[in-house]
Write a protein that binds this DNA or RNA. Structure first.
Lengths: 244, 244
DNA sequence: CGTACACTTGAGTGGCCTCAATACCTGTGG
DNA sequence: CCACAGGTATTGAGGCCACTCAAGTGTACG
């Protein structure tokens, strides 16, 4: 998504046009479509254009842990293509629009517009910081704090791509999804959501998350507002390398 | 560490020499030295040469979550330098040897030896898969499974850099470290270790982890042996890009 | 020799889990 | 149009896993 990168640095008209090239091979996929299956060999790199998906892993006995949400502008299988088989599954949460990207096209574009490489590096760093925060959340926060933190993380990610307003957003979050994301049971998510609602902090109704008390919620969850977007120009030039 | 990269692809003599350049500015640091402090601006990129460290985050009330272990051959602050300030703290676990790497030198080397870029991309993918596994572990596995899984992950990582033999390794793992890594309390780690010992699976004594029943342990934890090293040559050429 | 740190073990508590029943909404087919 | 099935949310009851508090042991170190 062009909008995400432009938070990193201003994009030239040409660079935007180059990004458009990645969107050439589009495909419409219905809800609950696997974009990737754990253990299967990789197809190609997929770019989410519109819609949402979840990355998750299944344990042999059926337990599921959701790793992250795939939002518009996110790549699927970019890092993983160095492995022989997919390490996790990806499933669309709603009817979505994806672009299939031939890796060579991607790298052509990056070669032509080196600044985009920096932007991709930046988003990779952001992705990792989201994973790190999730580890902290699941490992050391209570159920109450976990939900609060997740809602704020998603708010910020969606604002970055222009899909959330100041305090609310639409996302197909069932309680089962929340439970598998945060390492909780469905029942306990239901009870905890009720407490958050009663406290006047957040409401989740018909796939719409509304944050009624942003300050209160971030106080509860120790979420640093703006933490994802913090950015400083790199203290050095980003190199390019090429492998034959 | 040269040894890690050579698992990815054979390295030429010249490439090895180039990697040596990164080790030029060495520094010896004692135990419990912060290499990085949460919230502080970044210094430079650090390469662990010998020794170990932990990356962790602290919550305001003092709870600690360890994100990952820094082993020889790992970089500290490579991805994070795009952010204004450090997102997590890093602390040495024992007396260590580190190399301070000027980012420009690193990128010079990558430019001269593009295959090293591919290797770094590969290790980044591996790092991420470790984070992903930790999320699954903390979110959906029991204390018993968590410890089993961690011991196997560390075994594999250390074997990759030649610091573990077939079934044992030395690492300064206190029970507090294990607890903060796995989202458990110290007391419960103690009890669970006792159960693993009684089951004849693992022993942890004087900083030495010995795995007595590798098959049993991986059955308990659903750890895929060899999962980190799985590698397939990339289906495309890794591009290089440069930012001015 | 005393202090500090790490580990162990016991006792009691609580957060979150499981099982289960109910209610609601939506889409589907007779 | 209604009956029905499937997915989703709520609520109660009971139980367990992991937590906290606390005391005691062993080892390292100044």
């Amino acid at each position: 998504m062009v909008r995400k990168f432009s938070h990193f640095l201003p994009l030239s008209v040409d660079a935007v046009a180059a990004l458009e090239r990645l969107h050439e091979v589009r495909r419409h996929v219905p809800r609950n479509t696997p974009l990737n299956v754990q253990g299967q060999p990789y197809g190609k790199v997929t770019l989410m254009v519109e819609g949402t998906a979840i990355r998750y892993k299944l344990l042999p006995d059926g337990r599921r842990q959701i790793i992250n949400f795939v939002l518009p502008g996110d790549f699927v299988g970019l890092r993983g293509c160095f492995y022989g088989k997919a390490l996790n599954s990806v499933l669309t949460l709603e009817a979505s629009e994806v672009a299939l990207v031939a890796p060579d096209v991607l790298f052509d574009v990056l070669r032509a517009f080196p600044t985009l490489g920096g932007a991709m590096f930046w988003t990779a760093a952001m992705d990792q910081s989201i994973l790190v925060e999730r580890i902290v959340t699941i490992g050391r926060r209570s159920a109450y704090e976990r939900l609060a933190h997740l809602f704020l993380t998603l708010l910020e990610r969606l604002q970055l791509i222009g899909l959330a307003d100041e305090r609310s957003y639409t996302l197909p979050l069932s309680q089962e999804i929340l439970a598998d994301t945060l390492g909780l049971s469905v029942v306990h998510v239901s009870r905890t959501l009720a407490r958050l609602r009663a406290a006047g902090l957040v409401t989740l109704k018909e796939n719409r998350v509304t944050i009624h008390d942003l300050a209160g919620l971030s106080a509860v969850s120790d979420f640093e507002i703006g933490s994802l977007a913090h950015y400083r120009p790199p203290p050095f030039s980003v190199a390019t390398f090429r492998q034959e």
